[in-house]
Simulated assay, not measured.
Amino acid sequence: MILQVGLGDRAAFSALYDATSAKLFGVCLRVLNNRAEAEDVLQNVFVKIWQKANLYSANGYSPMTWLITLARNAAIDKLRARRGGTVDIDDVHDLSDDAPTPEAEAIASSERARLNGCLDELEADKSEAVRRAYLDGDSYQDLAARYDVPLNTMRTWLRRSLLKLRECLSR
């Protein structure tokens, strides 16, 4: 079958895959101990078999030995690449960027513009009271004193203003 694959025979390649893939997958899985990596390596092995089957020569070894050697070597290469890329976590500086992504910035800017537009639709004193209460952290008592209204009136202002904002933002 390998010789036929070397000649570009797709049916022979399919038959070779069906006959050997389980065994070769087992070899890769045994070396890597990771199913996803073993599947990737197996795929690469079969690509290599398709490309290099014309170079196969028995040299006294069975065809299965050649295939297992290809799979084993590819899995070992993957294992070495995995190990070579590791660094002690204590030696690595924190490289993460806590800043919002450009997409998140654009969305936040758009939402901020919508909210400001809705706040502008409120009466000026009520808009300012909402901003002071929910953005600046002023207490209801402080706001009631500032606008010279009873505490319950300030609560009503804020509640009604929030309902108007919700209605505006849902449009």
Rank of each mutant, 00 (worst) to 15 (best):
I2D: 02
A15W: 02
Y17D: 01
T20K: 05
A22Q: 07
V31R: 02
L32K: 11
N34K: 01
R35Q: 03
R35S: 08
E37S: 00
A38G: 06
E39P: 09
V41L: 10
V41H: 06
N44T: 09
F46V: 01
I49Y: 00
W50A: 00
L55N: 12
L55Y: 11
L55H: 14
L55V: 05
S57V: 03
S57G: 00
A58V: 08
N59W: 07
N59H: 05
N59K: 14
Y61M: 13
M64R: 05
T65D: 07
T65M: 11
W66P: 01
A71C: 11
R72H: 12
R72Y: 03
N73Q: 15
A74Y: 06
I76S: 04
D77I: 11
R82T: 10
R82L: 08
R83C: 02
G84I: 13
G85Y: 04
D88I: 09
D90S: 05
D91H: 14
H93D: 12
H93L: 04
L95V: 10
D98C: 13
D98L: 08
P100K: 14
T101M: 08
E105W: 02
A106C: 00
A106T: 06
A106R: 08
S109Q: 14
S110D: 06
E111G: 14
E111K: 09
A113E: 15
A113F: 14
R114N: 12
G117S: 10
G117E: 14
G117T: 09
C118L: 03
D120S: 14
E123P: 03
S127L: 02
E128W: 00
A133T: 02
D136W: 13
D138T: 00
D142V: 09
L143Q: 07
Y147W: 11
V149L: 07
L151G: 12
R155M: 07
S161M: 09
L162W: 15
L165T: 13
E167C: 02
C168M: 01
L169H: 08
S170K: 15
R171M: 08
